[in-house]
Design a protein around this nucleic acid. Structure first.
Lengths: 341, 341
DNA sequence: ATGTTTTGCACAAACGTTTGTGCAAATGAT
DNA sequence: ATCATTTGCACAAACGTTTGTGCAAAACAT
């Protein structure tokens, strides 16, 4: 295998006996502006092709203070909700000429902070993030550097940072309403991370639905504190041991509900006969379970696309996004996991 | 909000009235080598902290020809098999001080080519890739530039490029053996992309198992040609319309089998009474379906971790990996989707 | 006091780009 | 033939680092 020396603009310049500036201008299509003759232009292009030239994006980035790089910080890329978003973020970005560097926050603010710093040091042009907590100074710091940011799923309102999320309140409200209309009164709600807005909004939807139907809110039925499968599992176990156990569970995320299902199965409780279930996040397999599970669908694809579009728009126009938050409608897909009682 | 000017080494130098070289050396902990006094060292560190200095990784990368960046090219990050791998790749890399830029290939060689080029231009230190096809010149070109590469899942043997994959042959062999021992003779096999090695190996395992049990191979039962859910769906529909339809289906990936299940459900065929099913790729929900689905588990976490470890080892030692391929064992988890006949 | 070694740092080049400006040569006008 | 304009390109600086080398001043030795 023969040694392969990376070619630079300089090599082209030497080969065609021109200056690097001329070569650069030709390669960047600025021949008119700098009055490069067609003859030299062709010469340069031919040489570039022959040498298999490819620009060093580090150097360009350094010079231009523009890297065509986006950061994407996600709590858990293995979660299908986030991986679907990542898929769309990456595709959209690539189509627009941007690359995305993927960083995990592992649902841990300190990890998130260090990921933000790494991305900042890499001089990203913009950031997409689903922030772990309400601790956001590191994100505001980024903004001070004039780096556009878009939040996904989780967000902070009134900070002037645009976000794309679902109609969490409405989605939860409709679900619980449906449960109530099916005759349920003791409805448990297993939360994700408590101080995230989607969860706060979903819980608010849950509570409002109960109130509107004159059902007293039993705080002992509002349990859980993170997005893990384990959380769903444990809380379900505990719920079902209660003296006055619920007749329905509303799981506020896919993993939580999965944990709930695992617990119910272990306990020999059947859905929907012994207990009804509705979950946030729809996934294809939910339709194949017995019973199939009623779910609140979020538009993961659109969330990713829109967030990336907004971000790139901000980067390229310099304008900050006019309307702060975008709430995408959810859809309650009714299946067979809720019993009429 | 006050303007925030990014601080450079130069600003520190001015502030403490020293040269940039001294500052750089202090910041890089090279005080002994260059005999920087403790006094100046402390002075510099203090100033750096005060100014909230953070290094520009582009500039450093340019100077050092080392970016601490890995590329990860995957056919479909939304596929849980790949997103799990991505999760582990990113975590391992981060722990070792590397970032990963995520690129999709969309199961398309041309997209893959352009992704490779983008990453190369970004001067990545190494690449992890699940190549789409056997067309690999672009990957060999990367290698000519001395950029270490590790292949995941899909690979080409005997090219001197290390890879981490599953024991596809054995996993398939065991599955089909199990089907045969359950009394099945007409076993269909729905493939993914035909010219990928995992598929070739799985099909080989399938065929060998049949042969060893003196069952004639019926090529019309070997169908399908890509990894999509649709492929599984369509091929299953066609299979079940056949005069002599199979009694069992072996789906060679999670999405394929999911498509198969959808088709079977639509056709009103029940698993395992009307047809048995085994799938490659285990996922948590398979245990919750009725019936639960027998599956060949691949160690996604380990694949990601090992591949990243190998890659970074190569980058940092400069040695190419001694043994070319790593085959991780699969595990057949027997559930209730196969009927004894 | 003189010579030698050590200490402590600064200078400048380099990594590969992009771009404002300057300056000959070619072209045009009269 | 002379002057003005246009054409076509080169020079050099800059982006923020890192690092080989050079050179005073300080410390030491005699």
């Amino acid at each position: 295998m023969k040694e392969y020396n990376l070619k630079t603009i300089k090599h082209i310049a030497e080969k065609v006996q021109l200056s690097v500036s001329t070569v650069s201008r030709v390669l960047n299509g600025k021949t008119k502006k700098y009055r490069i003759s067609d003859k030299t232009s062709e010469l340069v292009l031919k040489a570039a092709k022959e040498l298999n030239y490819s620009p060093n994006l580090l150097a360009r980035g350094l010079r231009l203070s523009k890297t065509f790089t986006l950061g994407y910080i996600t709590p858990d890329i293995a979660n299908p909700f986030f991986s679907r978003i990542a898929d769309n973020v990456e595709k959209y970005a690539r189509q627009k000429g941007y690359s995305v560097v993927l960083c995990g926050s592992e649902e841990d603010t300190n990890v998130e902070k260090s990921s933000v710093k790494i991305l900042a040091d890499r001089q990203i042009d913009g950031l997409i993030i689903s922030p772990v907590s309400q601790e956001i100074q590191h994100i505001l710091d980024l903004r001070k550097r004039k780096i556009p940011i878009v939040m996904i799923d989780r967000y902070f309102p009134d900070m002037g940072i645009p976000f794309v999320t679902s109609e969490n309140y409405k989605g939860a409200f409709e679900s619980v309403k449906y449960l109530i209309e099916s005759g349920h009164k003791r409805i448990a709600c297993i939360q994700g991370l408590k101080n995230t807005l989607p969860i706060m909004e979903r819980v608010r939807g849950y509570k409002t639905a109960l109130k509107e139907h004159n059902i007293e809110i039993d705080e002992t039925l509002i349990v859980g504190d993170n997005f893990s499968e384990q959380n769903g599992y444990i809380e379900t176990k505990l719920l079902m041991k209660k003296a006055n156990s619920p007749t329905a569970i509303f799981g506020l995320s896919n993993l939580i509900s999965f944990g709930a299902m695992r617990a119910l199965k272990e306990e020999g409780l059947s859905i929907p006969n012994n207990i009804s279930l509705i979950t946030f996040d729809d996934l294809p397999y939910l339709d194949f379970l017995s019973p199939s599970i009623t779910a609140v669908e979020q538009q993961g694809n659109e969330i990713g696309n829109i967030a990336t579009k907004i971000l790139i728009d901000q980067i390229e126009t310099g304008r900050s996004y006019e309307s702060e938050g975008i709430f995408l409608p959810t859809k309650l897909t009714i299946r067979n996991s809720v019993k009429k009682i």
